[in-house]
Design a binder for these strands. Sequence first.
DNA 1: AACGGTCGCAACCGCACATTG
DNA 2: GCAATGTGCGGTTGCGACCGT
Length: 285
Amino acid sequence: MGRSPCCEKAHTNKGAWTKEEDQRLIAYIKARGEGCWRSLPKAAGLLRCGKSCRLRWMNYLRPDLKRGNFTDEDDELIIKLHALLGNKWSLIAGQLPGRTDNEIKNYWNTHIKRKLLNRGIDPQTHRPVSAGSSAAAASGLTTTASTAGFPSLRAPASRPHNPVLAAEPSNAGFERAAMSAPSEDGNSSSGSGGSTDAPRCPDLNLDLDLDLDLSISLPCSPSPPKTPAAVSTPTSHQQQTICLCYRLGVRNGDACICKAASSPAGAHAFRFLRPLEGGPVHIAH
DNA sequence: AACGGTCGCAACCGCACATTG
DNA sequence: GCAATGTGCGGTTGCGACCGT
């Protein structure tokens, strides 16, 4: 279907943001909170596209962003997450509080790619560039690089189920985001492939070779999400609700759109329902 | 100091999905 | 069921900063 433009391009500024624009945006969001990005620019007196405002806020102005260098631990975590998730930068960012998907994407393209190449590892496939190379073994990525691409990645059956990737098949939204691992040629399925692709790695277990701390603290309390999916989740008292916006650093109760889960904006927030004892995970919208 | 090349980051673009009426 | 709308994501680009000559 056709789409109307997100804004009237003739009357919007483009390019770098000025300090005044930043201040206007910050002041508006502090006063009114996030949400309704389309109408925000006008309400805030900004000659910007709503998407541009959202991007500026998410990637640069949010007060809880962690600025500064990535640590080696961050590097390794990103590499491992990328090996499992592919170019799902938002999901990777969700595991790195205070970091944005854009920041991680840039960091990947500028630093980690080179780092992996220096190790003799293909940054897209996470396999050794040359067959028989010992680089992968030395890198500590042997597990993720040892088989023919992501679809065949598999954890031992005795491994505990990973809370994130063990999503149920009905969680189409999450599958779209997390299951579409990069293809062999290194391109993600974003764009043309989309929802028609079958899940690439239905058995993929994020816990594979990872020591990720996915036991995420409870978000958005004291008001638990009240989406139908979350409410209807069986034995909800046995599960933790993991709010992705919380993981992205939105810890201000007002800013967290989970509180407004019935709103269009809230509907886009993934929530990871993590079983306390290794059961399947449910993703609620 | 001037110039050209490279790098890194912020921002834009197009698309897909979920929601709403 | 369909179209319109709002939002988010991933890929790409533009431009300033940095570096070497």
